[in-house]
Write a protein that binds this DNA or RNA. Structure first.
Length: 829
DNA sequence: AGCACGCCGACT
DNA sequence: GTCGGCGTGCTC
């Protein structure tokens, strides 16, 4: 008997035997790429199932893996009982530990996201090897072959194939690829009782395999349709073999057209183990270094922590935070526990991973979104093994399923890439890390030269008792000085007749650089050549057709076509010869980007060799590292780049840092702009003088008396806090108050605006006086990629956090309008 | 992911 | 009409 039949009467009569009877249905997140829904299954009698168990379920014609995300005592209304299938079996019990499961629930609740979206973050793609449907002969092969006149053509072909194979057994899929209308043929064999279908049990996860497509022939007997020809051409161009996924994307085709090609014998599809590319260059082993007294002090404090603790390691640039991490990790590993290290971007910090690897060897694994599928799966499997290890990863690695966690470290904790902005859940790895550390009862270390105000306040919070610690490292290692910072007033340069983008001081510093054979960095936060193009005759500015922003001018190299590109939606067009409005040929470029700076360098300082380091030049995988290695080996004198330069690069030979224009950092409109400007400038300044030679920093600006510049110049974090914190407190912004941003977007301006107004109206009634609603207001750039954007900002004291009814909010959205809920937003644009 | 379904054009 | 080709949408 089946538990469904036993349970129904109870449910219908409204009995609840909660303690004695487990719920008859479960919600299962099926392991399906891109699937957002959960599916309901019946629990067979005698099967003990819990949240977090990995199960196999029948799904369509296949058997798939999934994870139980909830139990149901009642069937959802829209489902009919007879459509519900039973769970097939439990593969692993207690796959997520109860505390990890609680973390996921907490994240879903805090960020107003569906549990399913959170669970997905913690699961690797291809959770379970899918079980295969197979067909095998059940006739005795020592007897003569069965009479096949009862069969149709496909039936005969299938029988033939099976008969001639050694085992009389093929996968359903293989038969279908070999034989036209194989389905029909197989059915006939079943009817005759000559064959049966069975499920190959799910294998324990094996080496990750992917489908690969081989080109067998360019010309064949059967003619091709244009679509098929296109696929063949595409495959040929790629060298005759390509991963199925890539081919489908490149040739824009579906599997039905590929199936046709297989039948015609042009291509073959098979499984192949995906190459794992994590062959890292070997690193020389290294040993713990002698610590400075300050490092010693901080480490001492960290080493005596047991249970949950939060420490802010506030170390100025070059103060040796990494060495403190390394020495804090060693005893944790000795105790047999694992360590999670989060960094903003793996690609930007190869030095950090190298350093860890040099110290701890193969106990390190790296986990981030840039990994290939197989690599990621392997790393993830590795993490489940219960031995002490270190995982270094980016934001999503905070959900790494490490059992027995002994320490979490967030390096460069101020970095905004720890916050997910667009996709739900809009989590902040810093916040999640704190919660996870509490649940795992382990210490958390936040490290930065420029801590976020939130973390700084939290670390000093007297009400937190003795769990919160502020650990300063105010000096650089080996008594190296922090570089002196000069603020240069560009208005005066102009008055003195210097129209160059380089001030006198910076020009002289660049000349010195080449004479002393030293290296320098030039920073500005604009890529491309010019930020906008305008017509001198009619004054028109060339704008993106899809966004309310100007197009940037990109000039790659002499010989290539100059382009106009939108930095918001990546729309690209060829730079026109003439003004599209008045046909004049006087188009002028304004605003400097990295390309223009390198161009001017070539003109004015031909002896200096430069490298450009921004998202245009580092798009290809491994390009970061290649550029940095080239620079380190002295193949260039100057590194010209954007924001990326600020992220923890440790380049010992750099003595000069020039900020070409600080103003674009100072003039942002949102409440964090001052904090961001302070962080960016301090970080980029910190790249200078990290080696034996002292450094020098030149910051060019049109607003030299801006208060932030004063704090940056004096390396004075406290001064920055003293200016900024009172302002935040006065207006109830974080860290005092809390924010939730409701982002509304849609293709129709009116619909978005109306929705925003309706939502504000609803909120006023619903959320009470403790919640201040700012807006609704159009975003600073109203239209991006043909979507209009409106915002609603909720501001409240932590105790007045509203409970948002997300279903209700979504129902307020007019047709085509999308709502994204961003809790603790970092950018409000 | 895989499979059915339905639409479309080419051919009996 | 029928068949193959091909995109779309559903799977508890």
């Amino acid at each position: 008997m089946n538990s469904r039949f036993l349970s129904w009467p109870l449910a219908e009569l409204g009995f609840s035997y909660e303690a004695a009877v487990t719920e008859p249905w479960v919600q299962v997140l099926v392991d399906l790429p891109g699937n957002q829904k959960d599916y309901t299954y019946a629990v067979p009698q005698g099967m003990a199932v819990q949240e977090g168990d990995v199960v196999t379920v029948p799904f369509g014609s296949q058997t798939l893996g999934g994870i139980v995300i909830g139990r149901l005592s009642q069937l959802p209304q829209e489902l009919e009982a007879h459509t519900i299938k039973e769970l097939e079996g439990v593969v692993v019990q207690g796959f997520f530990s109860p505390r990890f499961w609680r973390l996921l629930h907490w994240v879903a609740e805090y960020y107003y996201a569906d549990l399913i979206q959170v669970v997905r973050l913690a699961l690797p793609p291809g959770l379970i090897a899918k079980s295969q449907r197979r067909v095998r002969l059940v006739v005795d092969k020592s007897l003569p072959a069965p009479e096949s006149q009862f069969l149709s053509q496909p039936g005969r072909e299938v029988l033939n194939l099976l008969w001639n194979s050694k085992t009389g057994d093929y996968s359903y899929r293989y038969l279908q690829h070999c034989v036209k209308r194989a389905r029909q043929g197989i059915q006939e064999l079943f009817k005759q009782g000559w064959a049966e279908s069975y499920l190959e049990l799910p294998q324990p996860p094996r080496a990750q395999q992917q489908k690969i497509v081989f080109l067998l022939a360019e010309v064949g007997i059967e003619p091709l349709t244009p679509k098929q020809q296109e696929i063949v051409n595409c495959l040929k161009q790629q060298g005759g073999e390509l991963w199925l996924q890539d081919l489908k994307q490149k040739a824009q085709c579906s599997d039905s057209s590929l199936g046709a090609l297989v039948r015609k014998g042009y291509i073959a599809i098979s499984w192949q183990e995906k190459l794992r590319l994590s062959h890292q260059p070997p690193v020389v082993g290294d040993r713990p270094q002698v610590l400075t007294p300050q490092q010693e002090l901080a480490l001492g404090e960290l080493l005596c922590q047991t249970g949950y603790h939060l420490s802010l390691l506030h170390g100025v640039t070059g103060s040796g935070k990494t060495e403190v991490y390394l020495q804090a990790i060693a005893p944790i590993l000795k105790k047999g526990k694992s360590v999670l290290v989060l960094v903003p971007e793996i690609g930007l910090t190869p030095q950090l991973t190298d350093r860890f690897r040099a110290r701890f060897g193969d106990r390190i694994s790296v986990y981030h979104s840039g990994l290939g599928q197989g690599e990621r799966y392997d790393t993830w499997r590795q993490m489940l093994l219960n031995h002490a290890q270190i995982v270094i990863g980016t934001r999503s690695a905070i959900f790494a399923p490490l059992p027995n966690l002994g320490l979490i470290i967030l390096d460069e904790e101020h970095d905004s890439s720890f916050k997910q902005t667009q996709l739900a859940p809009t989590y902040d790895a810093r916040t999640v890390a704190q919660r996870r550390a509490q649940l795992e009862e382990c210490p958390l270390i936040l490290g930065s030269a420029t801590p976020s105000l939130e973390s700084w306040v939290r670390a000093q919070d007297p009400s937190a008792g003795h769990t919160n610690h502020y650990l300063p490292l105010p000096q650089r290692v080996e008594k190296r000085p922090l570089p002196p910072i000069e603020i240069v007033d560009m208005r005066q340069e102009l008055r003195r007749g210097n129209r160059s983008i380089f001030s006198q001081a910076l020009q002289q510093a660049l000349i010195d650089l080449s004479e002393k054979q030293q290296q320098g960095i030039l920073f500005l936060n604009r890529r491309g050549h010019s930020t906008f193009v305008s017509c001198r005759s009619c004054g028109v500015v060339l704008n993106c057709p899809h966004c309310d922003v100007s197009l940037s001018y990109h000039y790659q190299q002499s010989g290539s076509v100059p382009l106009l590109r939108c930095h918001y939606c990546n729309y690209t067009q060829i730079h026109p010869q003439r003004c599209p409005q008045c046909q004049s040929s006087y188009l002028k470029f304004f605003g400097s980007g990295t390309q223009k700076v390198t161009q001017i360098l070539t003109e004015q300082f031909p002896q200096l060799r430069w490298l450009r380091f921004d998202s245009d030049t580092t798009q290809r995988k491994g390009e970061h590292r290649r550029l940095l290695d080239a620079f380190k080996q002295g193949k260039a004198d100057v590194l010209v780049g954007t924001q990326m330069l600020t992220k923890g690069l440790d380049l010992e030979q750099v003595t000069l840092v020039g900020v070409v224009a600080a103003d674009s950092l100072l003039n942002f409109a949102d409440y964090r702009s001052t904090e961001r400007a302070f962080q960016t400038l301090t970080q980029v300044a910190g790249r200078a003088g990290r080696g034996a030679e002292p450094g020098r920093v030149i910051i060019q600006t049109y607003t030299p008396h801006h208060a932030v510049l004063g704090a940056v110049k004096n390396h004075d974090y406290q001064a920055f806090v003293d200016q900024e914190l009172p302002q935040r407190q006065a207006l109830n912004y974080p860290p005092q108050g809390q924010l939730i941003l409701l982002r509304l977007t849609g293709p129709l301006a009116q619909a978005v605006e109306k929705t925003a107004l309706a939502m504000a109206h609803y909120g006023q009634k619903q959320w009470g006086a403790g919640v201040e609603i700012l807006g609704p207001a159009p975003a600073s750039i109203l239209r991006v990629a043909d979507r209009f954007r409106w915002h609603l900002l909720l501001k409240f004291a932590p105790q007045h956090r509203p409970s948002l009814d997300t279903a209700q909010l979504h129902s307020l959205c007019l047709a085509g309008v999308h709502l994204a809920i961003d809790v603790d937003p970092v950018y409000i644009d």
